[in-house]
């Protein structure tokens, strides 16, 4: 991405709405939209389980904030953030989605035009069984996820406005 490319922050919610806690990213993205607390310049994408079909919608993203369920063996509802090469290294083989987030990130890297920054805010699921409601622990984690997302967006917005003339580092594979 050239340094003069316009900046576009996008918020991507991922997950299967029919697999209980897997839906936490999708549901939280909706809550953020409905909250009215997002700046109007932020585009929210409900990515569902679309995998590589999202490439088109992500075209031209400079900062990508992803909300999704991430199983790291922590206590249900635990929030954890991933960025840089941590993302590309995330395993995907048994993902509930057709193709996982790391496949999407790597596809963008291979195509040579990835966002400058990608941050994944993950929540540890308790269950990914069939069901349309979050488990209590994960539902309780949503408010923290919302605050973390807003915080990150605020940080990026600030960076962008103060860095208009600075060189912006391009996300590179380690």
């Amino acid at each position: 991405m050239s340094q003069s490319a316009p900046t576009q922050i996008r918020l991507l919610g991922l997950g299967n709405l029919m697999r209980t806690d897997d839906a936490v990213g999708m549901l939280t993205a909706r809550m953020l939209t409905d909250s009215g607390r997002l700046p109007s310049t932020i585009e929210v994408i409900e990515g569902g389980t679309l995998g590589l079909d999202l490439l088109g919608q992500l075209d031209g993203t400079s900062h990508l904030l992803v909300l999704d369920a991430v199983d790291s063996g922590a206590a249900p509802g635990t929030q954890k953030s991933f960025q840089g090469d941590e993302l590309a290294r995330l395993p995907t083989s048994k993902s509930v989605h057709l193709l996982g987030l790391s496949d999407l990130v790597n596809a963008m890297l291979l195509m040579g035009a990835p966002p400058m920054e990608i941050i994944l805010l993950g929540v540890q699921p308790e269950s990914t069984d069939w069901g349309t409601a979050l488990t209590p622990a994960v539902e309780a984690a949503q408010s923290g996820l919302i605050e973390a997302a807003l915080e990150q967006i605020k940080r990026w917005t600030k960076e962008i406005s103060s860095a208009t003339t600075e060189t912006v580092p391009v996300l590179a594979i380690p």
Binding site: D71, T92, K94, V96, L120
Partner: peptide, 9 residues
């Protein structure tokens, strides 16, 4: 059951 490493679902 899925693996115990960090796994994006």
């Amino acid at each position: 059951a899925y693996g115990r490493k960090a796994l994006v679902l």
